[in-house]
C-alpha cells in the first residue's frame, strides 16, 4: 500500500540573483511500512523536499506538482487541515536542533506541547509522557532533565529531544532529517534500535549523510543530486551495485574508502548545467551528456537510474 506519492514535485525560491530550483521534478512513493532513505550532497535539496511535504516553507516559495497522502493532495488542503496532519499524521524531525527548540521554554514543556496539541492529554499526563520520551531517547535522569532549558543540553542531547518530539504523537509517517547527527556510536546504535522498532508500524523518510545508518535502517534508497533524483533502488543494490557515477563517487568518499572526494563543486541551483547535471564532474561524460538531459530509466526491476551510460 502506498502511503505517500509524490509526483512532478517542484519547489523554487525566488531570490534577487535568480530562481533557486531546490527541488526539481521529483517522483517518489513511500509504502505504509516502508523506510526510505534520501541521500545526497549538502545543498542538493533534501531538507527542502521534507519541508515541502510538511508545507513549512515561507509563503514566497513556489511549489508545483502533487503530494498525495492517503488519497488527499497535501498541496490543495487548507492550512487548518494541514496543521492537523502535521504532528498527528506526519512529523518531521528537523535538522537543526538548536534553532528549532524554543530557548525560553523548558525542554519538557516543548515535548508536552506537541503531545497536548494532538492528543488532548492533561498537563500532568503530557509531562509524564515527555519524561517517558526522554528516557526512550536515552537521556539520563529524564525526570530532572525535563525541567531544563535547551541551552543546558549538549548538542547530541538536543538532537535526541528532536527525535522525542517527532515520535511523541505516533504519526504514520516520520520525516527524519539527519536524526543521528552528533551522536556517538554507542548512543547511535541505541537510537537506531529505537527507530527500527518505530518503523515496524509506520513509514519513515530518513534524510541522512550517514551511510551506515541508511544501510541499516532503509528498505530503499534514493540518491539526489542538484534537486533531482539520480538513482533509486533497494538498499542492497545501492551499496552492492551502484550504477550512477555520482553514487559510485559518493560511496568512494567514505573515510574507510580512502576519503576521495568527488572532484569539482556542486552546481549552482540557479544556473544548472545543460544536459546531465552531473556532467561537469563526471568521468564518463560524453558529448551526449553535455547536450541532453537524461531521463530516469528502470534498468533492472525496481532499480532506476538517470544516466545514459549506466
Amino acid at each position: 500500500m502506498t502511503l505517500l506519492r509524490i509526483s512532478d514535485l517542484k519547489t523554487q525560491f525566488p531570490t534577487p540573483d535568480g530562481i533557486v530550483r531546490a527541488v526539481d521534478t521529483i517522483d517518489l512513493s513511500i509504502g505504509e511500512r516502508e523506510t526510505l532513505g534520501l541521500i545526497g550532497e549538502t545543498g542538493c535539496g533534501k531538507t527542502v523536499l521534507g519541508l515541502t511535504l510538511m508545507r513549512l516553507l515561507q509563503s514566497s516559495t513556489k511549489t508545483e506538482g502533487t503530494i498525495i497522502y492517503k488519497g488527499t493532495n497535501l498541496l490543495k488542503i487548507s492550512e487548518a487541515e494541514m496543521r492537523r496532519i502535521r504532528g498527528e499524521e506526519i512529523a518531521m524531525i528537523l535538522q537543526n536542533p538548536t534553532t528549532s527548540l524554543n530557548p525560553v521554554m523548558r525542554v519538557g514543556g516543548q515535548i508536552a506541547e506537541a503531545i497536548r496539541l494532538h492528543q488532548g492529554l492533561s498537563k500532568r499526563d503530557a509531562k509524564e509522557k515527555a519524561i517517558e520520551m526522554l528516557d526512550a531517547v536515552r537521556i539520563p535522569s529524564p525526570s530532572i532533565r525535563v525541567n531544563e532549558y535547551p541551552h543546558e543540553f549538549s548538542g547530541g542531547m538536543k538532537q535526541r529531544v528532536m527525535i522525542a518530539m517527532g515520535l511523541a504523537c505516533n504519526p504514520s509517517l516520520i520525516i527524519a532529517d539527519e536524526p543521528t547527527k552528533g551522536l556517538d556510536v554507542t548512543i547511535k546504535s541505541q537510537i537506531m534500535k529505537l527507530l527500527k522498532e518505530v518503523t515496524e508500524e509506520r513509514a519513515m523518510l530518513i534524510i541522512t549523510h550517514d551511510l551506515g545508518v541508511a544501510r541499516e535502517l532503509c528498505d530503499r534508497i534514493a540518491l539526489m543530486y542538484a534537486g533531482e533524483l539520480v538513482e533509486y533502488a533497494t538498499t542492497g543494490e545501492i551499496f552492492e551495485d551502484p550504477l550512477h557515477p555520482y553514487t559510485r563517487g559518493f560511496l568512494g568518499s567514505l573515510p574507510s574508502n580512502g576519503l576521495v572526494p568527488i572532484p569539482g563543486m556542486s552546481p549552482s541551483l540557479i544556473n544548472l548545467p545543460d544536459g546531465c547535471r552531473f556532467h561537469p564532474r563526471c568521468g564518463h561524460a560524453t558529448e551526449l551528456c553535455r547536450r541532453k538531459h537524461p531521463d530516469m530509466i528502470e534498468i533492472e526491476d525496481g532499480h532506476f537510474v538517470r544516466c545514459f551510460h549506466a
Binding site: 513549512l56 515561507q58 496543521r83 502535521r86 504532528g87 517527532g166 511523541a168 504523537c169
Partner: peptide, 12 residues
C-alpha cells in the same frame, strides 16, 4: 520568523 512549528499549530 520564516518557518512554522512542525509539531503543532503555533508559529515559531
Amino acid at each position: 520568523p520564516k518557518l512554522k512549528n512542525p509539531f503543532g499549530g503555533m508559529e515559531r
